[in-house]
Design a protein around this nucleic acid. Structure first.
Lengths: 63, 63
DNA sequence: TAATTATGTCCAAAACATTTGACATAGGTG
DNA sequence: CACCTATGTCAAATGTTTTGGACATAATTA
């Protein structure tokens, strides 16, 4: 499952570390998700969505 | 994390078994998610969303 | 250049999601 | 009532996500 996290995070000018802290996870988690190592849990997807100010349906690309 | 799966599934007149099959999981998985035993993975959330014809952001209630 | 910050990666363990198989109960229909 | 379908639940096994600690490299800045 692809996502737009890295692009949107950079547009907002924040680091993986800052995004991680906002979402209550560690930096490696953000890094793995941005690089498609695995998908976030649903709760984390919503936290990312909220922090990055886009809807879950926009942030992730299904299919 | 709450969700509207049971309500929408009933409105569509389908069983847990049918929804499960559509989404490629077993009946117990749908049952557990409807009864808030655990949250689905992000991929399953998108499959449920697609089958139930509502957006992920509408199907699940975060906060 | 040297120092600092940001990112990518690895591993093992912990936490969480899903399956399989089974049994119990609730609701409707003959 | 007896039958059948749908739903709820449980425990053990398996698969996936997240953590914590560590190290390497890339990019930025003094």
């Amino acid at each position: 499952m692809k996502n737009k996290i890295k692009a949107i995070r950079k547009k907002l000018g924040i680091t993986q570390e800052q995004l991680a802290k906002e979402c209550g996870v560690v930096r490696q988690t953000i890094n793995c998700i941005e690089n498609d190592k695995y998908d976030p849990t649903l709760v984390l997807a919503f936290k990312l969505s909220k922090t990055l100010k886009v809807k879950v349906d926009e942030l992730f690309i299904y299919e």
